[in-house]
Simulated scan of single mutants.
Amino acid sequence: MASHALSVLHVLPSASQSCNNSSRRSLSIPLILKSDSLVSCFIGNKVSDRSSNLRYHTLKQRRSTVATVLFSLPTTKPERAASGKAPKWSARAIKSFAMAELEARKLKYPNTGTEALVMGILVEGTSLAAKALRKSGVTLFKVREETVKLLGKSDMYFFSPEHPPLTEPAQRALDWAVEEKLKSGEEDGEITTAHLLLGIWSEKESAGHKIMAELGFDDDKAKGLAKSMNKDIVLNSK
């Protein structure tokens, strides 16, 4: 085939039947090809280096999903956040929240609940709160298992939204963490995963609290975590 200018080939759903699984995952992304080095299972020519561009754009899309929660978390008092007087969330807490949304989507739940927040903390894994959970015997696998037992499985044909909205208990847990930080009177420091976990624990009727209690977390361990908050702030500031 003679070489000429670049063309854009949009992969249509009807053609996906002849492609392998990796091709199907890229259906929504335009494939930029040279006519003399087409990258396609439809034509059978050699794979071009331009396939690396496709991987780059796919990765860029994934990164943009997480970027929406890089600086703050949902609040019922947006005016406080807008004024700049609200304390900031730590990077670990924000990552834990992003992982919580992902866990909710994996289970195909319509909302991000307190149980998902616990899973998010465990997925992030490096915070004082995550270490306290593991020390108490609360692991990611066990929380997932208990979540399905308590809340059940979602319809296999249901697809969660990109950012499953918070349940009311989960939002109250986040607000509790903010308020607790404000009560401390500390001008410096951040709202950490320890604040977040204790916020979940404060919601006695929530799924997250029930699952943590079932797996061995209790009030004494919550008090121990509360005393260690300052250490968590130091770790997050490094």
Rank of each mutant, 00 (worst) to 15 (best):
L33A: 04
H209C: 02
T193W: 04
W201R: 00
L102S: 13
P164S: 10
E124L: 03
S16K: 04
S35V: 08
A116C: 08
E214K: 15
A132D: 00
E168S: 10
M212A: 08
A222T: 05
G185I: 03
N53I: 09
R63F: 12
P165M: 01
T193E: 09
L151K: 05
R92Q: 14
I43W: 05
L9P: 00
T167N: 02
E101P: 04
Q17Y: 12
V69G: 14
S51T: 08
K142E: 15
A104M: 05
K131M: 06
S28H: 12
F141C: 06
S14P: 07
A226T: 02
S51P: 12
D220S: 13
P78Y: 06
K135Y: 00
R62F: 07
T126H: 09
Q61S: 14
G137I: 04
E179C: 11
E168Y: 10
K221Q: 07
T65S: 13
E79L: 13
L166A: 05
E146N: 03
T114W: 04
L12A: 11
L107V: 00
K95C: 05
I29R: 06
N21M: 10
K221I: 00
H209R: 08
G216S: 01
K221H: 06
H4C: 13
S40F: 07
R105S: 15
G199Q: 05
V234I: 15
K183M: 12
S22Q: 03
V178F: 01
V69D: 02
